[in-house]
Design a protein around this nucleic acid. Structure first.
Lengths: 186, 186
DNA sequence: TTGCGATGAGAACGATCGTTCTCTAGAGTA
DNA sequence: TACTCTAGAGAACGATCGTTCTCATCGCAA
């Protein structure tokens, strides 16, 4: 038998795949159990309710997102380069064949009237990203008002790419970000 | 008894309120029937399935959106002014107490794995908005590449405002749009 | 070997969903 | 008046949901 840590990872992984592809409400716990290969009893011991599982999935997504952003930023030397690297990261993400938009936005739209804990997790993720951008804007020596503008561009690129089905929005948002950066740094 | 046109309007109106506030999947047809005051039999005569009702609700939202955008644009003289007016429209919308984000984005996130007709309706709305912005950009004498950038700003403002729970994103996006417009019109 | 606690597989439960059906009442027509 | 058609109210249906329960099985201490 596998230990709790491994079982937990398998369940979160399977749930993430299913929830992201089909939506949370369209996926039953039975499907999660089949995909994960972990019994329902064990799943409910690890996650007392489906909401807890959704939160765990989002927290896992946050780790992946942060790691991806950090890896792309590392290849850039300046703070300005790190800010633009966000859009390169988005570009690569949008080109993945199973891209279906930002999981946080999707879940928020689906469960906005429901679990309050899920809403909080989504909000925290967006706030953390905003804080990351704000830190880089400070380092770049640009006025603080630039940060939310760049964050809005990244947000808009994600929903536009999801709905249009093309990755074009990443490059378009990057170009806009360059203009805003140039104007702010004059 | 009311005629079909009035019954249809009542059902769409009630469904819109419920779907927007709680999500499509969280609202049963029984709740729509109670809110609309129209019998289930009649609802299913007007809309053969729940998906058809969702599409009708989205089409109604599109009319309201287009009318609101047009009304705000009318108060601006120039094409540049009409482009910025989009963000004034968003600002007023975000301040409404029951604002919960863009209904099209919410529905897309919720049913992305489901009805293909719903997906098409969402995509058409976003394409139509993009075409509207592109037309104004042309009239303003700016390069065509500006249009998707402004559309992405509007899109990002909507999701940011929904998740953050504040209307700030409208003004931030408007400021960014002014910078992009100034740079494009040099 | 015996007894015990935990596990996996999946049946079972109560609720709710989208959709259809039944039954009754009333309007219009000859 | 008698007949027909439609609509409303809501029960009914089969499916599916999240969650819990049953039961056979296994590892392991004494």
């Amino acid at each position: 038998m596998i230990d709790d840590t491994a079982a937990r990872a398998q369940v979160v992984d399977a749930a993430d795949r299913l929830f992201y592809a089909r939506g949370v409400q369209a996926v039953g716990m039975d499907a999660v159990r089949t995909e994960a290969g972990v019994s329902l009893k064990r799943i409910y011991k690890l996650f007392p309710s489906k909401d807890d599982l959704v939160v765990a999935v989002l927290e896992c997504r946050r780790e992946v997102w942060n790691a991806g952003i950090a890896a792309t930023a590392e290849r850039a030397g300046t703070a300005r380069g790190k800010l633009l690297a966000v859009f390169d990261f988005l570009d690569a993400w949008f080109r993945e064949p199973d891209f279906r938009g930002c999981a946080f936005i999707n879940v928020y739209g689906e469960l906005s009237g429901g679990s309050e804990q899920v809403q909080r997790t989504v909000r925290e993720q967006k706030e953390a990203f905003g804080a990351y951008v704000a830190q880089l804007v400070r380092e770049a020596g640009a006025p603080a008002s630039l940060a939310p503008q760049l964050a809005i561009l990244a947000e808009g690129a994600q929903t536009t790419a999801a709905i249009s089905g093309t990755p074009d929005a990443a490059a378009q948002a990057r170009t806009a970000a360059e203009v805003l950066l140039a104007a702010a740094l004059d």
